Each structure stands twice: as structure tokens, then as C-alpha cells.
Amino acid sequence: MNTLSISSARVVPALNDRIAIVTGAASGIGHAQARLYAAAGAQVVAVDRSSDALLELVSTIRGDGDKAVSITADLTSTSDIARLVKETTDQFGRIDILANTAGLHDGYVRSLETSDELWDRLFDVNVKAVFRLTNAVLPGMLERGHGVIVNIASVASFVAGGGGPAYTASKHAIMGYTRQLAHEYGRKGIRANAVCPGMVETGMTREVLSDSTSRFVKAVNAVPAGRFAQPEDIADVALFLATDAARFMHGAGVMVDGGLTVR
């Protein structure tokens, strides 16, 4: 298998000029994923609602000699999803990899305090947007007989406590959807898998993690890894799932939680 060395201490599998859409690329896991996919040889289409942050990301990637373009889109909009897929296929001819990374957290709001609006917002972004974008990309993948879908799920896809009920239910839904995709399309050349992070330091969680006395920080510090994750820790696994090294993985939910769920 071809490899691409990006530092003296690191060798990553090459993505061989594959076309990869990465959502949520303006920050956090998506940002790290876009940079790592590009370093591994992919042409990255970085997607988010924040155009300024995307332009900065693309400039950084291109400055490293890798390839990326940005498309600003609201993934809760069906017209934006259609435009995203059309612009990508018009420019590159195909989509090989779809990384559904964009997502929202509910701030651990308990069920009795969860409004219909919060519940709907979480499901619109975390579930329905993934469903719609995947369905928009799948026909082209099926026509070519090859495609990779990497969803960002969560430890909250399996256990309670990673969020409030809206977040936990939405991430359970993503894991179920990932498995169903593998069941329906695996024999047709589509690989669908999910990465299931524990606590990751991103813009979405930084406020919670900044309080060293909080029960969340204490719980994270008690895990075998002894720390919370950085976005790159998750992006490394998302890269593996996108490569041919994961060719026999279908419908998997890969825990990347520092050992949070070992007990």
C-alpha cells in the first residue's frame, strides 16, 4: 500500500487523489480531518457555514502543498446540499469519500429541560443532515461501485452521560444509520463506518473542560488515557477508516475514548 510521510515520526496511508467531502471543517475534528485527508493525498472539499474559517483552512492546506477547496453550506438546507454535491461533481467528476463530521451538542440539558426546539435542532444537524447528504452522494458512489462514508458518532452512541437526551438519542441514531448503510450497500462497494469519540477538546466542549473542578473533567481524568482527546486523535482514526487499510470494516463503531467505556 502506498504511504505518504508527513513528518519524521509519522507515516499515513495515502488516499491516492481521492475526492473527499469533509463537513464541519471550519473547526474541531472536521478541521483536523480535512488537513489530515489532504496530507494523505486526497483532494479535500471542506464544508461549513463559516466562510472565513474555511478560507483560512484552505489557505493553510494549500500552503503545506496539499489540495483543498471550500464550499460554504448550511447542511440543514436541501438546496445547499444539492448545490454542494453538484459543485463538487462538476469540478472533480466524482465523490469518493464522504466524512459526515458536522454536529451539535446539547450542553447536557436534562430531559425535563429539553425543549422541542432543542431536540429538533439536534436531530436536524446531527441526523437529518447526515441522512440527506449521504443520500445525495450515494447514487454516484453506487454507479461507480465504490465509496466510503465515515460518520462521526460518539461514545453517546452506546452509553449515557456523553450529553443530554437530545445529543445521546441523535448519536444512537447515527450509529444505527451507519450500520443500516453497511447492511444495505456493503455488497455494492460502499463502506460505511463510524468513529465514536469520547470527550474531545473543541470549541464545542472547551468551556466545559476549562473547569478543572467539574464532574466531567474529573471523569475524563480518571480514564486510562488520563486526558481528554485532541481533534487529531479522532482524525487519525477517521483517516484509517477512509483508506483501503480498513477495507474489511463495514458498519463498525470504533471507540476512540481513551478507555472511557472499558468499565
Rank of each mutant, 00 (worst) to 15 (best):
N2F: 07
T3H: 00
A9F: 02
V11P: 00
A14P: 02
L15R: 04
L15D: 02
R18T: 02
R18Q: 03
I19P: 10
V22M: 01
T23S: 11
A32M: 04
Q33S: 09
Q33T: 08
A34S: 09
R35D: 05
Y37N: 01
G41L: 00
G41K: 02
Q43T: 07
A46D: 04
R49T: 03
S51Y: 06
S51Q: 08
D52V: 06
D52G: 01
D52N: 06
L54Y: 03
L55W: 01
E56N: 02
E56T: 09
L57P: 01
L57I: 06
S59E: 12
R62L: 00
G65M: 07
K67T: 04
I71L: 14
I71Q: 10
A73P: 09
A73T: 05
A82K: 12
V85G: 03
V85R: 01
K86T: 12
K86M: 10
K86S: 12
E87V: 11
Q91D: 12
Q91C: 06
F92N: 08
F92E: 06
A99T: 03
T101S: 10
T101M: 03
A102Q: 12
L104T: 15
Y108Q: 11
Y108C: 08
R110G: 10
E113I: 13
T114Y: 08
D116M: 14
E117H: 09
N126S: 11
K128W: 04
V130I: 15
V130C: 11
T134V: 14
V137A: 08
V137R: 11
P139T: 12
M141V: 03
L142S: 13
L142E: 14
G147D: 03
I149N: 05
V150Q: 06
V150N: 07
N151S: 15
I152F: 14
V155W: 07
V159A: 09
G161K: 08
G162A: 11
G163Q: 05
Y167A: 09
A169T: 11
S170F: 06
S170Y: 10
H172I: 10
M175V: 12
G176L: 14
A182P: 08
A182D: 04
H183P: 07
Y185K: 13
G186I: 05
R187W: 10
R187N: 15
I190E: 06
A192S: 15
C196A: 15
C196V: 09
M199V: 15
V200D: 10
E201P: 12
M204Y: 09
M204A: 12
M204P: 15
T205G: 11
T205W: 02
R206S: 15
S210D: 14
T213I: 05
R215Y: 06
F216Y: 13
A219R: 12
P224Y: 13
R227P: 07
R227E: 11
Q230I: 11
E232H: 03
A235G: 09
V237K: 05
V237S: 02
A238N: 02
A238W: 01
L239R: 01
L239S: 00
L241H: 10
T243K: 01
A245P: 08
A246Q: 00
A246R: 02
M249V: 13
G258A: 04
V262S: 14
R263K: 13
